[in-house]
């Protein structure tokens, strides 16, 4: 089942200015339910830009983007907000956490806007996810006091909390040491397999990637090719 498709996607930063930069050129991409997909490329090749567009964080692009067969441009801002809440769970390289809030306050954010989980179910859902990620004991700590590994687990918990269909992982382990990175990646992948999630992993390092991915796109010079 096709979840999303991007056709002839192009992205230009600082359009019509002297510093105009073309990052993506006519890239096409299809994501089916259950796919485990890697997008690799050198630093600055446009991987994060691509992920931002796919995750509905960037609306300024050329090309066609459809989600479950419906054009994204036809959605209004409220519908896009619902899609971001229900469909995508995004894990960023630098965690993107609210620094002066506790781990609990960070993890609960998607549930504030969720239609899947009612108010009274929130606590159980958080308990369920944090137990799986083994971060129950740090829930009340401010995230600024947490280690890199703990912060990344909090970010993953937030991405998973609303049970999204697609997990978008933007170099989720690049800030962590090798052992920790492997452990976290293994966890996400096994969680994805167990819960039938669709995963898109963006990375510049394809060396230490487990062999569970069924598709591999490569981004170079703004072009996307299926390897």
């Amino acid at each position: 089942m096709r979840l999303l498709a991007l056709e002839n996607l192009s992205k230009v930063y600082n359009k019509n200015t002297r510093s105009e930069t073309r990052v993506l050129q006519n890239c096409s991409f299809i994501l089916n339910k259950g796919d485990f997909l890697i997008i690799s490329g050198e630093s600055g090749s446009g991987k994060s830009t691509f992920l931002n567009i796919a995750g509905l964080l960037d609306k300024e692009y050329d090309g066609e983007y459809t989600i479950r067969g419906q054009a994204v441009e036809k959605h209004n801002s409220n519908q896009l907000a619902i899609l971001r809440n229900e469909m995508f769970g995004i894990v960023f390289q630098d965690y993107v956490l609210v620094e002066d809030a506790s781990a609990y306050e960070n993890i609960i954010i998607p549930l504030y806007y969720s239609k899947k989980y009612k108010r009274k179910e929130r606590r159980n859902r958080i308990h369920e996810i944090t137990q799986t990620l083994k971060i129950e004991d740090i829930l009340n700590k401010s995230v600024s006091q947490l280690s890199g590994g703990q912060r990344q687990r909090v970010a993953i918990a937030r991405a998973l909390i609303n049970d999204p269909d697609v997990l978008l992982l933007d170099e989720p382990t690049s800030a962590l040491n090798q052992d920790l990175a492997q452990g976290i990646l293994q966890f996400i992948l096994s969680f994805g397999q167990k819960h039938h999630k669709t995963i898109v992993l963006v990375t510049h390092d394809t060396q230490n990637i487990p062999n569970v991915f069924n598709k591999h796109y490569q981004l170079a010079d703004g072009k996307m090719t299926l390897c």
């Binding site: 995750g55 409220n78 971001r84």
Partner: peptide, 12 residues
């Protein structure tokens, strides 16, 4: 921004 990514509407 983090809330918008997580599904908040501008109204919220």
């Amino acid at each position: 921004t983090i809330h918008l990514i997580s599904g908040a509407t501008l109204k919220a």
